[in-house]
């Protein structure tokens, strides 16, 4: 069976207007200022797989997630979500909408559920929006089944979000996301607000659901160990650009980009290895990024070309890397 592309993102650009207020700008004759949160980004996700974006805060990974979800106005580029399932005769517009829609699991288990709604209403919201239930009884049954599917009980539907722990709330969030039967889920740091022992439960639930329902995930995280556990493919982002796209196994066995190497070196290790290379500097201000390769001020392999010319993604084996040093075989 040929691999189907579920999601295709082509040269996505998301700029935020960070200009000073109009009056200040006119008085001081300042130009408009843009923050290039996502700058010319392309990737595709194969059906049933997990594509992850990793990077430090401010690298634009969450903005990508929100743009793909349609929550963010994009400046330029194309996002195609090919959710229409072949075995489902999409006769009704509602059903087509539902199939093409994107669902999302959010970072904060507290802010992602309306505190004034009962859990059953929260989970039923997408069912109602896409008219997926025949009647009230059918809806109630679907909600009960969803709650059980994510490891809660049907009677939990009567409670309010504040009666649950962080991990349980994240389960509710997952039940809501699944209730409109999406094929594609965006997970924006779904476990970074949870305790480790609970994180494992939620990650396991997500992989189990992926296997059962054939879900495609766009997974966002800053935690490389979680990325390693969840992903098939990984994109490493730095200041709004992808610097390396690679199969998961390659990323950890054979990292190419100097930034990827640095990230890997920073992972706190339970073995307590002490021969870590020293890491210097911080992510620069994205409003005034460096010239050429954005990483050059922190890069030990930077040369003149890196300071002036922006590297593009080049194929190296299974990996695609945007680095002059790798291209020139210096690295």
């Amino acid at each position: 069976m040929p691999e189907q592309v579920a999601v295709q993102v082509d040269s996505l650009k998301v700029y935020f207007d960070v200009s000073p207020p109009l009056v200040t700008r006119l008085l001081n004759k300042l130009p408009r200022q843009y923050l290039k949160a996502v700058d010319d980004l392309s990737f595709s996700i194969t059906k049933g797989q997990t594509f992850s974006l990793v990077g430090e805060s401010g690298c634009g990974k969450s903005t990508v997630a929100r743009s793909v979800a349609g929550l963010c106005r994009i400046h330029d580029g194309q996002i195609t979500i090919n959710g229409t399932d072949a075995d489902l005769p999409a006769a009704r517009q509602d059903q087509r909408d539902a199939a093409e829609q994107v669902q999302m699991i959010f970072q904060s288990p507290y802010a992602s559920l309306n505190p004034r709604w009962r859990v059953r209403d929260i989970v039923a919201e997408p069912i109602r929006a896409f008219k997926l239930a025949r009647d009230k009884a059918d809806e109630r049954q679907q909600v009960a089944r969803l709650l059980e599917q994510v490891g809660l009980s049907a009677s939990d539907g009567e409670k309010y979000p504040h009666e649950f722990s962080g991990g349980q709330r994240q389960r509710i969030s997952i039940a809501r996301a699944l209730s409109s039967r999406p094929k594609f889920l965006i997970c924006d740091e779904p476990t970074s607000a949870l305790d480790v022992s609970v994180q494992a439960q939620i990650l396991n639930l997500m992989t189990q659901l992926q296997d059962e329902l054939g879900l495609t995930y766009l997974f966002i995280s800053h935690d490389l160990a979680v990325i390693d556990h969840m992903s098939d493919w990984v994109g490493v982002m730095y200041l709004g650009r992808i610097c390396e796209i690679t199969p998961k196994s390659e990323l950890f066995a054979n990292p190419r980009h100097p930034y990827t190497r640095m990230l890997l070196a920073t992972v706190p290790d339970l073995q307590g290895k002490s021969n870590r290379p020293t890491i210097t500097g911080e992510v620069p201000n994205p409003i005034t990024p460096p010239t050429g390769c954005y990483f050059h001020p922190r890069c030990p392999h930077a040369e003149d070309r890196c300071r002036s010319e922006r590297p593009t993604l080049q194929t190296h084996g299974p990996t695609r890397v945007a680095c002059h040093a790798v291209q020139e075989k210096r690295l």
């Binding site: 929100r66 979800a69 349609g70 929550l71 909408d97 829609q101 994107v102 669902q103 999302m104 959010f106 970072q107 904060s108 802010a111 992602s112 559920l113 309306n114 505190p115 004034r116 929260i122 919201e125 997408p126 929006a129 896409f130 969030s173 809501r176 409109s180």
Partner: peptide
């Protein structure tokens, strides 16, 4: 994010205001 979740399923803005924002 619960507002984002409502936007995801294309809830019309008046409904978001009435059902999500107002009670809170």
């Amino acid at each position: 994010d619960y507002i984002a979740a409502a936007k995801l399923i294309r809830t019309p803005v008046p409904l978001i205001l009435l059902r999500h924002i107002l009670p809170n």
